[in-house]
């Protein structure tokens, strides 16, 4: 049986891992290579790195740490943040990332999804969607949650699937950083209308939240950051707990 994936997310700025609370107030909590290795040992199924600097002169730093991470990780990892064109994509994939995650650029230029899928394969394209409930609608936000778009989350999800995205990383801005559970409603809705894997993101505060999202929605993976970084939830404990509640997870002792 296919296992539900547990994915720690690491936000990286200037080559260091940080975590924003509601996308602001960044705290420094480590070296990406060290943390990546630690998470693999703890039983993470996959990792996501979001580079939140990603300005022109940071590009080389990014490629450098992606290479270093790729050397120590024998589990898949995704890199996202500030990707502007196919050259960026190629550089990150060549550095050893298994998937790239795009957000703002996909909204501004949806055909890039198709281009990446064609050139590298659908499995390389994760489209990250930041969603917020506003005026009775689920709206897509870009630029790290700063800019509201005209897009409705349901329509946009369907569109990125049609364009060839391999996976959707859906972050609820209403839940992100709150630690009071994943956004069950929107996750449940999106997983019913599309047929590619969806990663739940935003709101994990304890083990029960993971159980809830796997029981109530069809997401195939759940992502969290600070609760793993600050060891509020240990990955092995979480997986043991999920197994006890009949959620299939990869559980290996190291």
């Amino acid at each position: 049986m296919l296992k539900k994936r547990i994915i720690p997310c690491l936000d990286v700025k200037d080559g260091r891992v940080v975590k924003g609370i509601k996308f602001e107030n960044l705290k420094d909590s480590g070296d990406p290579v060290e943390l990546a290795y630690r998470y693999m040992q703890e039983g993470a199924d996959e990792l996501v790195f979001l580079d939140i600097t990603a300005t022109e002169n940071q590009r080389q730093t990014l490629i450098q740490w992606v290479k270093e991470v790729a050397k120590v990780l024998q589990i898949p990892f995704t890199v996202g943040g500030g990707i502007r064109n196919l050259d960026d994509v190629k550089a990150i994939i060549d550095a050893g990332a298994d998937k790239i995650s795009i957000n703002s650029i996909a909204v501004k230029n949806p055909s890039i999804i198709e281009s990446i899928a064609k050139q590298f394969g659908s499995q390389f394209v994760v489209v990250a969607i930041d969603t917020k409930y506003k005026n009775q609608q689920n709206k897509v936000f870009i630029a790290g949650g700063k800019i509201e778009t005209e897009l409705q989350t349901e329509n946009w999800s369907k569109e990125v699937e049609n364009l060839g995205a391999g996976e959707i990383l859906l972050t609820s801005m209403d839940h992100d950083g709150e630690k009071n559970g994943f956004a069950i409603d929107i996750l449940s809705k999106i997983t019913q209308i599309i047929n590619i894997p969806v990663i739940a993101s935003g709101g994990a505060g304890n083990k029960q939240h993971f159980l809830e999202v796997f029981q109530k929605t069809k997401v195939t993976a759940a992502l969290a950051a600070s609760i793993f970084h600050y060891q509020i939830v240990n990955i092995q404990d979480l997986k043991k707990y999920l197994l006890e509640h009949q959620i299939p997870v990869r559980y290996a002792k190291y």
Binding site: K3, K4, R5, D45, S122, Q123, N195, I196, P197
Partner: peptide, 13 residues
């Protein structure tokens, strides 16, 4: 066959 999510992506036994 189109009966579940494709690709088959993740860890399996």
């Amino acid at each position: 066959p189109d009966k579940d999510i494709i690709p088959h992506m993740g860890w399996n036994e």
